[in-house]
C-alpha cells in the first residue's frame, strides 16, 4: 500500500516543496516532516513527503554498486 517515490527537494515555499522525481517536478506537502531543506532526498506518497532518504545510506549504496562484481566471483570460488 505504498506507491511512494524518491526525489530531490528543489525549492521550498510555505509548507510545500517542489520535488524533482526523475525530471518531473511534483509539488508535495511538508506537513509530515519536522524540517525539510533544499537538496534533501525524500520519499513522496499521495502528495506528501513522508520521510527523508538518508544520504549516508545512499552514498554507501552507490559505492557498493560499483564494487559489486566481487560478489559473484566470491560465490563462484566456493562452489
Amino acid at each position: 500500500m505504498c506507491v511512494a517515490v524518491p526525489g530531490e527537494v528543489i525549492k521550498i515555499h510555505d509548507s510545500k516543496a517542489e520535488v524533482r522525481i526523475r525530471k518531473v517536478l511534483l509539488e508535495a506537502d511538508c506537513a509530515l516532516m519536522e524540517s525539510i531543506s533544499v537538496g534533501d532526498r525524500v520519499l513522496v506518497h499521495a502528495g506528501f513527503i513522508i520521510e527523508k532518504i538518508s544520504r549516508g545510506e545512499s552514498d554507501q549504496m552507490m559505492e557498493d554498486l560499483e564494487n559489486y562484481s566481487n560478489i559473484t566471483s566470491a560465490w563462484e570460488d566456493d562452489s
Binding site: V3, V5, I21, R22, K23, V24, L26, V44
Partner: peptide, 13 residues
C-alpha cells in the same frame, strides 16, 4: 523510455 515517463509512472503507479 524517457526519464520523465519513468518519473510519472512511479508517482501514479
Amino acid at each position: 523510455m524517457k526519464e520523465e515517463v519513468s518519473g510519472i509512472s512511479g508517482i501514479f503507479g
